[in-house]
């Protein structure tokens, strides 16, 4: 990506925002568990992973911010609802059921790792350099969450039933991750995004591999191209609730310096 025209620039911004928004909202949802996770160690570890998600979001907002001439904070907190490009799964209410939170994180973390791996080869060098660093951190999160799925699936009959139900309950929403933001085709043309294998197939293979270890099978269907969702700014009620919570402090005084 040597010269950058306006259309490509907007597409690149959309790509960064779609990933960063996923991470910000997921991190925010997960941080709601701070203080009430089922065991103390999970409380600390899950909060720490939520911080990582928000740190990753922040790095991507800064990258996009350079092109938008805007601060990371303003991008993160100052947009209108339909300008957020996160997928529906990240804000799907977990009802404070630990199995739901683990299932959601399991699907999202594995998808994020795949995205970062692919973007490490991007022709946009800044994005490639950032994603190379994020891949290593994301791998930690994936290992952690894969172990949690395994743990719940091999714990008691009740824990197996609950994680199986949660994985099935979030299967439909997982499809929303694969909707592409506006201008994505242009990025493929320009090698900003490398498409060697369909990302849905690759993701499904990794998920199936983990689940086969614990004898769980979940059916997924990629319906992302059929309906407009979060990546097009069309959001659920759960998203609206999250956004209100997230913007509450910012809206008190957008110009305040922290």
């Amino acid at each position: 990506m040597s010269t950058i025209d306006e259309a490509t620039q907007q597409a690149v911004i959309n790509l960064c925002l779609s990933i960063a928004d996923d991470k910000l909202f997921l991190g925010h949802r997960n941080s709601n568990w701070t203080g009430i996770a089922p065991i103390l160690e999970a409380d600390i570890a899950f909060s720490s992973l939520a911080q990582d998600d928000i740190a990753h979001a922040s790095a991507l907002y800064e990258l996009a911010g350079n092109l938008m001439d805007e601060t990371a904070d303003n991008i993160a907190f100052g947009r209108k609802p339909d300008a957020y490009l996160c997928s529906n799964i990240v804000t799907k209410d977990d009802q404070f059921d630990w199995a739901n939170a683990i299932a959601r994180q399991f699907y999202c973390s594995n998808f994020d790792l795949l995205r970062f791996e692919r973007l490490s080869n991007s022709s946009w060098s800044e994005l490639a350099a950032l994603c190379k660093r994020l891949v290593v951190e994301q791998q930690i999160q994936v290992n952690h969450i894969n172990d949690w799925v395994k743990q719940l699936a091999t714990g008691t009959p009740e824990s197996k039933e609950r994680i199986t139900n949660a994985l099935n309950e979030y299967a439909d929403a997982a499809s929303s991750m694969f909707e592409t933001p506006y201008g994505f085709d242009l990025l493929i043309e320009q090698d900003v995004v490398n498409v060697t294998e369909d990302i849905f197939d690759a993701w499904q293979a990794r998920i199936a591999e983990q689940l086969s270890l614990v004898d769980i099978s979940v059916d997924f269907e990629n319906t992302a191209s059929e309906n407009e969702g979060g990546r097009s700014g069309v959001h659920s009620d759960d998203f609206a609730d999250s956004l209100t919570e997230l913007q509450a402090v910012y809206k008190e005084d957008p110009a305040a310096s922290w």
């Binding site: 065991i39 570890a45 172990d147």
Partner: peptide, 20 residues
């Protein structure tokens, strides 16, 4: 110290609890 069901989870928890 920390409590965990097995070595793998202990390592996951230790990483976040004491490594960060």
């Amino acid at each position: 110290s920390l409590s965990a069901p097995n070595a793998q989870m202990a390592a996951n928890f230790a990483r976040e609890h004491y490594g960060q």
